[in-house]
Amino acid sequence: MKDMTPYGIRQQIRSGEFSENTSGLAQGFVQGNLAIMPKEWANDFLQFCQLNPKPCPIIGMSSQPGDFMLPDLGQDVDIRTDIPKYRIYEHGVLTKEVTDVTEYWQDDLVTFLLGCSFSFEEALIADGLEVRNITEGVNVPMYRTNIDCKPAGRFSGTTVVSMRPMKPADAIRAIQICTRFPSVHGAPLHFGDPSQIGIADINAPDFGDAVTINEGEVPVFWACGVTPQVAIEQAKPPMCITHSPGHMLITDLPNSRLSVL
């Protein structure tokens, strides 16, 4: 899978042959978090993303309600089938995880694609920094925090973060690198003591998998595109579709397009 093109991976996902997390796949190409909701709720969500660009950087949208093909993001991208695993929320409650949302599709649905930290992982590795979740072959650990998002209309909530352990000097270098990528969460929000941002147990992530933190390393936390799922839980729209954490849309867009330098 690691040697396949984004289009090839999407075809594997669409056929049901691949349904795992996408960290480390399609190096050089943008991956995206997903949020789909009825048109009536879309303007509030758009404003929520605009007010909270660190956790919710928009990199793509459907052109019209009901559109499920996203040609601006890649060849033959069908948002109903091309993500390895989806979550279905009903009135803010997670009710199902599925690998295809065709049967749930409605003509009033609006799709948002948000930048994903998997895109900047490549830049960290290229600079010689280890990304522990890739080294250990697991999904990145993600945590709910006490960092409030700015509310917009019916949407509010706290920020979800992803974590990668690093030595302090490497954490400083990661800040410098990721500042160049504001469209995929930018620089970390915090590093060091997890309790300062409301995380009680670093070894028990709310989403994803725990990773090893070695002696002399500190946890480094980035804003995460799972944040909208917390906002959806609180806003309670009648129906929403998101990606399952770590299971992204792999686009044909090169990561180089996201760098500001």
Rank of each mutant, 00 (worst) to 15 (best):
2 K>T: 13
3 D>R: 11
6 P>S: 04
7 Y>H: 04
7 Y>E: 11
12 Q>M: 13
13 I>Q: 06
14 R>V: 12
17 E>V: 10
17 E>T: 12
20 E>L: 15
24 G>N: 01
24 G>R: 06
25 L>M: 08
25 L>R: 00
25 L>N: 04
26 A>R: 02
26 A>Y: 00
27 Q>E: 08
29 F>C: 03
30 V>I: 13
31 Q>E: 05
35 A>Q: 09
35 A>H: 07
37 M>V: 15
37 M>N: 05
39 K>L: 14
41 W>I: 09
42 A>W: 11
43 N>W: 12
44 D>K: 00
44 D>A: 03
44 D>T: 08
45 F>C: 10
46 L>V: 07
46 L>G: 04
48 F>W: 11
49 C>S: 09
50 Q>M: 09
58 I>T: 10
59 I>D: 08
61 M>A: 07
62 S>P: 09
63 S>A: 15
64 Q>Y: 10
68 F>I: 07
72 D>R: 13
75 Q>L: 13
77 V>W: 09
80 R>V: 14
80 R>T: 15
81 T>F: 12
84 P>F: 12
87 R>M: 15
88 I>P: 12
91 H>Q: 13
93 V>G: 11
93 V>D: 14
93 V>N: 13
93 V>T: 15
102 T>A: 12
102 T>N: 07
103 E>Y: 09
106 Q>G: 08
109 L>T: 07
109 L>Q: 06
111 T>P: 04
111 T>A: 08
113 L>T: 04
115 G>T: 09
116 C>Y: 05
116 C>W: 08
117 S>W: 01
117 S>R: 02
122 E>D: 05
125 I>N: 02
126 A>H: 00
127 D>T: 01
128 G>S: 04
140 V>P: 02
141 P>E: 05
142 M>K: 10
148 D>S: 09
150 K>N: 09
156 S>P: 06
159 T>F: 07
161 V>H: 01
163 M>V: 10
164 R>G: 00
164 R>N: 06
166 M>V: 00
169 A>P: 01
171 A>Q: 00
171 A>M: 01
173 R>V: 02
173 R>M: 04
174 A>I: 00
176 Q>Y: 12
177 I>Y: 02
179 T>C: 12
180 R>L: 15
183 S>K: 15
186 G>S: 06
194 P>K: 03
196 Q>V: 08
202 I>D: 04
203 N>S: 15
204 A>M: 14
207 F>L: 11
208 G>T: 11
216 G>I: 09
217 E>F: 03
219 P>K: 00
220 V>Q: 00
221 F>K: 06
221 F>P: 05
223 A>Y: 02
224 C>I: 10
225 G>W: 07
225 G>A: 07
227 T>I: 11
228 P>M: 12
230 V>I: 15
230 V>T: 15
231 A>P: 08
232 I>L: 15
239 M>G: 13
242 T>N: 15
244 S>W: 13
245 P>Q: 11
251 T>E: 04
252 D>G: 06
254 P>R: 09
255 N>A: 01
256 S>G: 03
257 R>W: 01
260 V>T: 14
